[in-house]
Amino acid sequence: MALSKSDVEKIAHLARLEINDADIPLYANNLTNILSFVEQMSAVDTTGVEPMAHPLAASQRLRPDIVTETNQRELFQSIAPQVEAGLYLVPKVIE
């Protein structure tokens, strides 16, 4: 299947990626090639095969519910693009 310009725009929007209009045909072409390549998968009958999400068949461990981390807000916010009074600033969301 070939992805159209609007397919690429939709995927880019879902992924929150700005793509320049001029680059869309190239992405459409690349993504179409990759998807046709992975299409080989559908030729294999996988009825009854249990999906494998992870190489080690272990369940996630739980840790005791005790405090292990200290507050490092100043350190972490020192590398943020924009902060004020301990808060991360973004453009106004609610008028």
């Binding site: 690429v8 995927i11 880019a12 879902l14 992924a15 990626l17 793509i19 992405y27 690349n30 993504l31 990759i34 998807l35 992975v38 998968m41 559908s42 294999v44 996988t46 095969v49 249990e50 999906p51 494998m52 999400a53």
Partner: peptide
């Protein structure tokens, strides 16, 4: 990086998840 993010986003999106992501996980088992 953008190509891979978009491929992943597409493979995980509604309607395609089983055909791509679950299928790939089954092949991973094989």
């Amino acid at each position: 990086v953008k190509r891979r993010i978009m491929i992943g986003t597409y493979a995980l999106s509604a309607g395609y998840y089983d055909a791509y992501y679950i299928k790939a996980q089954q092949l991973r088992r094989l």
